[in-house]
Write a protein that binds this DNA or RNA. Sequence first.
RNA 1: GGGCUCAUAAGCUAGCGGUAAACUGACUCGUUUACACCGAGUAUUCCGAGGUUCAACUCCUCGUGGGCCCACCA
Length: 802
Amino acid sequence: MAEETKKEGDYDFAEAEARILDFWEKKKIYAFDQKSKKKIFSIDTPPPTVSGKMHLGHAFMYSQMDFIARFHRMIGENVFYPFGTDDNGLPTERLVEKMNNVKSKSMDRGDFIELCLKTLKKITPRFVQDWKDIGVSADYDLYYSTIDKHCQKISQKSFIDLFKQGRVYKKDFPSLWCPECQTSIAQAELEDKEFGSLFSTLKFSVAGKTLGIATTRPELLPACVAVFVNPKDKRYKEIIGKRAKVPLFDFEVPIIADSSANMEKGTGVLMVCSYGDKYDAEAIARCKLEPKIVMNKDGSVNYGEYGGMKIKEARKKIIEDLKAQDLIIEQKSITHAVNVHDKCGTEIEILPTEQWFIKILDLKKKLIEQGKKINWHPDFMFKRYENWVNGLEWDWNISRDRHFGVPIPAWTCEKCRKVIVANESELPVDPIMTKKKCSCGGDAIGESKVFDTWQTSSITPQIAAALVSGIKIPYSVRCNAHDIIRTWDFYTITKSFLHENKTPWENMMVSGFVTLGGEKMSKSKGNVVEPQKIMETSGADGLRFWAASSKLGEDLDYQEKEIVSGKKFVTKIWNATKFVSQSLSQENVSFQGPKNPIKKREGFCGNKKPKKLEETDRLFLASLNKVIDSATGSFSDYEYSRAKQETMNFFWHVFCDNYLEIVKRRVYSGTKEEKESASYMLYQSLLAILKMMAPITPYITEEIYQNYFKKFEKDNSIHISSWPEKIKISEKKDDGSVLDLLLSVLGEVRMAKSKAQKSMKAEIVLSLEKEKIEKLKLVLEDLKGVVSAREIKTGSFSVEFL
RNA sequence: GGGCUCAUAAGCUAGCGGUAAACUGACUCGUUUACACCGAGUAUUCCGAGGUUCAACUCCUCGUGGGCCCACCA
């Protein structure tokens, strides 16, 4: 690409965006007004997990939220848009471990927490700056971090409330366990991953006869506690009630008839191990079998000569040993999907550990009802929520065997096992640091586990509301991408239901993903595009303009070329403004590019209504009014992409390509009245266009507003100015058709000139049908001027060159 | 296997029950008093098959092909 040369007077977005951002911050343009009586528009966005940099998906989604936020601010609502970061729990621990090359599990708890806090302090400001840079109009003074005292307090209070409601229980129970992170996890943190595996049919024996059982996990043989066959399965009728001998380990387990055994799969015989999957856990509980735990928390096994080996190592060795003793009937390679931990990709195990749960399985119906009360944009996204709730199989596990998180404010009595929770007055509390006595006289031991980050990040509406007064639940709107419907949205809906018996939000905006060549961007695929890079080359406005090009909920393929149109828009509106300004400044001085654009400049004289409005101007204003109407409607319906398209179409093709060309004649050589009318039209349209684009491209619109409009307008910033209303003009019902005719004649003349390979300025004699001349009689002078016609004659359409 | 969703020009996306668009790209031409990061113009298009209808790209059904979520570890 050729190096672009900047000319004097060109818009320098890098310089301007930095300066304008600073202006917004200093003037607190986006501050929530606690004293105002205006209608509140409250916004809940998921606090991004602190990592090095904002990614493009964030930029995409937060831009979309911001379009709506800015629109509501301009229609006169008091926008409450706090900003938070999510910075505790496993994701943060993993980041800190990586950055500092340490392992949380092998560090002292206090030291590790200190390291986390120190690291966060270092990286958070840079991280948040990305949000500011793309122009997210949050009130950054209303800031929370999910590990700060304020959040800890509210999170702990939430836990205590739910405990008192009887919703919280602690249970020693086989649950999802990540051997890599060495913590229990929640169902929502499961992901699928395809693995290749060996599917082996092993020789069990029953009364000396061989019984084939297929498995992919022979390392669980010593954990086998029973063998299931289907009671309807004729093949195995004889053996029900007998005992089967486990190969290699030579112990016997009962053979039980259980209808859950699928006759089609494998040999139709199933070994139940403690624990291969959730099914095993249920089967063992149902049949009251005694589990044999063969796995350690770090993912190693604990039996015999294999003791200490990791799962996969043990599996390999056992297969070798089975082979050596001829205990394998058949073996084939398969690929199958396995549940892995979404944070680290490690295969999940099921281990009995003591964890804290919030009981939710009895609430499925009610939670779906809650979801239904929310207006989902687009509405089909509700289905995803509903599906997830319907598919729930586990209560919500909220405890994690980690260090860096909000402490669980609970103690368990050593003597009577009673659970004591903290008093509200002592929150936030770290139970490890505080001693408690049980009413029975025993010592109560403080809980050393911490909350999962969702326990806290699911109450961001409550957390942010507590920063100010006057904010009520439900909030007006929540925005996030569709991947976290099942987690963040689900948990937040659950919490608001349990605490307030309300939905957390009235509206739900669900944004799509950014893809590259149709694929989801991800670090592991190595196909990430950094928003910071885009901003360097095309500015935040360019990035946002692109983010507004697909509708809500739709994935959008990133293409570098597409950013270009945003950049072009910025240039175009800058240049159009230059023209307008230069043509209509009072002294009519020629335009000189501003070195420092925010400085006093010649302004318009067009904000005053002229004595007589030219017919052409009236027609164009009527057309503008239609755009104002539809853009307002589109923004109200969260259809920012449609609003953008409508506004752009008017700006580019109606205003620039046609009106500006038409009006040049009057600007350069018209009468005083003609100029005044044009001036009014130019001022009103340009301001309306700027305002309609302000939610999408906040920087350039602010820059132009400050330079050219500020001295005639009362508001400090375009972003707190009022949304455009229809221009008060008298409208007639065939205005549209007259304008259409004018533009189509103009188009036909241009085509004729183009075909004749003539300049657009070539002088002509235009012939036009009588009815058309009649219809255009009030705009004939403007038509004549714009097509450079010496005269317009009556006759069938023709263009004669002179 | 279940659910949701998408399928429109070379690419990326709008759109609508009345007969197709914007942007990028290609091609032709033009441009010096806003803009060569421009203007005018040309070419190319609604996945397939049925159905509803006076009329379907738009609604319905089926198929095909993507995407996402869930289930699937014997």
